[in-house]
Design a protein around this nucleic acid. Structure first.
Length: 546
RNA sequence: GGCUGGGUAGCUCAGUGGCAGAGCAAGCGGCUCAUAAUCGCUAGGUCGUUGGUUCAAAUCCAACCCCAGCUACCA
């Protein structure tokens, strides 16, 4: 693992058909923590997230509401951005597939695929469910009255035939297998890679990359004879159709870093270091997308991380089922820091996890209010009470200094392999050690002895409180990517400057700051102790499902 | 149906041949710096089922039950 001087991380762009649920923003919160971690470490970091706005369904929904598709998605994007702001998401760009520069990028990708001989014209046909689009026969139910969609049994299925452009995915089977063999860690977790590998080995078919009769999309830039479909007035011939939404959506990752208009920036940031995606779109990202990039002569992303889903009572959270948590409600109850921490601590980043309002509140109270928040509170209070607020110096070689070495190494290791929940667990083990240290040393007993003139007790008390302040400083800084506003508040209470910007940029290299005793020599005063994370008494407002 | 992973304490999970573990939740006790917090102790499990291998099985093997994922064009 070489120390990268730049880091490019993306999330999947969210389908802008409805307001976002916590399950949609889950990966964005995770990617945001990852981006902040890299910014604080000093990497030149670029974090891209955004919305996917073209599709037949969106056009249909907009029409039902009496709006143009663009009016409709503009409204949705306001909701997405509001939710991201509430969660303190810090993208360097919020990309929309309706952004003007994205059209140029998609067109360039199409032209390159064509130039590589990977586009051919053909016919696509199959059963079409008016609610879900084309369905594979294996996903349908056949009975005496014909074929039915299992999710919409009363809808009449149509057998549709379309003239489409096809991408020669079949030509990439060997190249993909080789890439997987030469880059064994490029899809993580491992079992997600294996699923894709077995899919590749089972044989790849070409997929269509254009649509007729779907006007809400990026115009297909070439005609059947290979000539440009641009008309003299600059517009595009509707008869050429539109680009299949997934070809368009995937391309956002290169648009976001300047493809093709800004070659310097693109050169700097491509290939992406990490795509964070959900398991439902794994194949698109680890089979189709790399083939598209190979065809365009572009490098492949270094890693794709496939996270699981949030479940509510065993069922996948989804907007269509109505069983989802509204991120605005969660932030309202737990605060932005609390919502971020609890989501990333409670949900395993590598698999599905059942969550509940109860589990969120329990985690908030246990980890944030009781363990860490209270540790800072008692440390600051004791420093005020026993030393009039004068911050004491941490010593080398103490119990906590040693515990920190172990915890920090485990935290970094888990973070680097993106097991974010385990990284936090490792850090909180150290919080537990610090609380235990308070009981072991009993500062209040030492304080009485100090008052009675016991110089040895005074030295001991100074050392204990110095170590505790240092423990709080280190945890706050290490956890800052997860709790970006609580971290500076904690540092302020401890009497330290917080040297990073609101998005984690600026400031010294984090790993230097995370050395035990990095600021030992600096004099300072703690401030008044104020609870960082007020305890939630009972279940507050249970956000109504739906 | 095929392939893959899983079923361990009330909950979430760790544990790949040697006395069943952690965190949270529960009960009891200690302490008083602190946000009724914290620290200690206790309780709680036929390790999915049945059979097999072995001195010894949560762990290895077989069968079965249950759950999840993958098995190509909604995004």
């Amino acid at each position: 693992m070489s120390p990268a001087d730049r880091y490019y991380v993306t999330t999947a762009i969210a389908y802008a058909n409805n307001k976002p649920g916590l399950h949609t923003l889950y990966e964005v919160i995770g990617a945001d923590a990852i981006a902040r971690w890299h910014r604080m470490k000093g990497d030149e970091t670029y974090f891209l997230t955004g919305t996917d706005e073209y599709s037949v369904n969106i056009a249909t929904t907009a029409e039902k509401l009496g709006k143009t598709p663009k009016e409709f998605v503009d409204e949705m994007v306001v909701l997405f951005r509001a939710a991201e702001n509430a969660l303190l998401i810090s993208p360097d760009r919020f990309i929309r597939t309706t952004d003007p520069d994205h059209v140029a990028a998609v067109h360039e990708m199409i032209r390159r695929a064509y130039a590589s001989g990977d586009l051919r014209h053909g016919t696509y046909e199959g059963w079409y469910c008016p609610n879900e689009g084309f369905k594979a026969p294996s996903d349908l139910i056949q009975d005496a009255s014909g074929m039915h969609c299992p999710n919409h049994p009363h809808a009449t299925l149509q057998w549709l035939t379309e003239r489409n452009w096809f991408f020669r995915l079949s030509a990439y089977q060997e190249r993909l297998e080789r890439y997987y063999a030469e880059n064994p860690n490029w899809v993580q977790p491992e079992y997600r890679k294996n699923e894709m590998l077995s899919f590749i080995r089972s044989g790849l078919e070409d997929f269509s990359v254009s649509r007729e009769g779907a006007p809400w999309g990026i115009p297909f830039p070439i005609r059947e004879d290979g000539s440009s479909s641009q008309l003299p007035d600059g517009s595009w011939d509707p008869a050429a159709g539109t680009v299949y939404v997934w070809f368009d959506a995937l391309t956002n990752y290169v648009t976001g870093v300047g493809f093709p208009a800004d070659p310097d920036r693109f050169e700097r940031f491509w290939p992406a270091d990490l795509h964070v995606i959900g398991k439902d779109i794994n194949r698109l990202h680890t089979i189709m997308w790399p083939a598209m990039l190979m065809s365009a002569g572009l490098a492949l992303p270094r890693e794709v991380w496939v996270h699981g889903h949030l479940l509510l009572q065993g069922e996948r959270m989804s907007k269509s089922l109505g069983n989802f948590l509204d991120p605005i409600d969660v932030v309202g109850s737990l605060g932005a820091d609390g919502a971020r921490y609890v989501t990333l601590r409670e949900v395993a980043f590598d698999r599905d996890t059942d969550v509940s309002w109860d589990s969120f509140v329990r985690r908030y109270n246990a980890d944030l209010a009781n363990d860490f928040g209270n540790l800072v509170n008692r440390t600051v209070s004791m420093t005020n009470r026993y030393f009039e607020g004068v911050r004491q110096e941490p010593g080398p070689g103490g119990v906590l200094a040693a515990a920190w070495e172990t915890a920090a190494a485990a935290y970094r290791q888990k973070f680097d392999c993106l097991l974010l929940h385990e990284a936090l667990a490792a850090l909180w083990e150290f919080v537990g050690a610090a609380n235990k240290q308070v009981e072991t040393e009993q500062p209040w007993t030492l304080a009485k002895a100090m008052k009675a003139g016991d110089a040895e007790a005074e030295a001991r008390l100074r050392a204990v409180l110095g170590d505790l302040v240092e423990a709080c400083r280190l945890v706050a800084l290490a956890a800052a990517p997860f709790i970006p506003t609580a971290a500076p508040r904690a540092l302020t209470q401890l009497g330290y400057e917080y040297p990073y910007g609101a998005d984690g940029n600026g400031g010294p290299a984090l790993l230097d700051e995370l050395r035990w005793g990095a600021h030992a020599a600096e004099a300072g005063r703690v401030t008044i102790a104020e609870p960082l994370f007020p305890r939630l008494e009972s279940e507050p407002t249970t956000p109504a499902a739906g």
